[in-house]
């Protein structure tokens, strides 16, 4: 749930999504849902020469379960805040 909130704060930022089929796609993060499915706008596949399959695709929906990494813009993530929030979440989980 925490990561979902983090992604929500990152809408309209430029991100790179690496998929489990080794495709990397960069684009503007438009929205995220509870499954961490991602909508990207103005997409571009990295290494386009090798992957011309998506030349005519300008925006896309990526299934959360096939995402390996999302590269975030460091200047838009408050790592200190995130650290505190993850610790708070794990301590409340241990108490339960």
């Amino acid at each position: 749930m925490l990561i979902f909130s983090v992604f929500k704060t990152l809408t309209d930022q430029q991100v790179v999504v690496e998929l489990k089929n080794d495709l990397s796609i960069t684009g503007t993060l438009k929205s995220v849902d509870q499954f961490l499915n991602i909508r990207l706008d103005n997409i571009k596949v990295l290494d386009e020469a090798r992957h011309p399959h998506m030349m005519a695709v300008k925006n896309c929906f990526i299934r959360g379960s096939v995402v390996r990494y999302v590269q975030l813009p460091a200047e838009h993530v408050d790592t200190q805040l995130l650290e505190d929030a993850t610790r708070r979440e794990t301590t409340t989980q241990i108490k339960r």
Partner: peptide, 16 residues
């Protein structure tokens, strides 16, 4: 089974 769904720009698609 789905990995990715993308909207195709038909003008670009037909020009390829």
């Amino acid at each position: 089974m789905i990995v990715l769904i993308g909207e195709v720009d038909e003008a670009i698609d037909q020009s390829v």
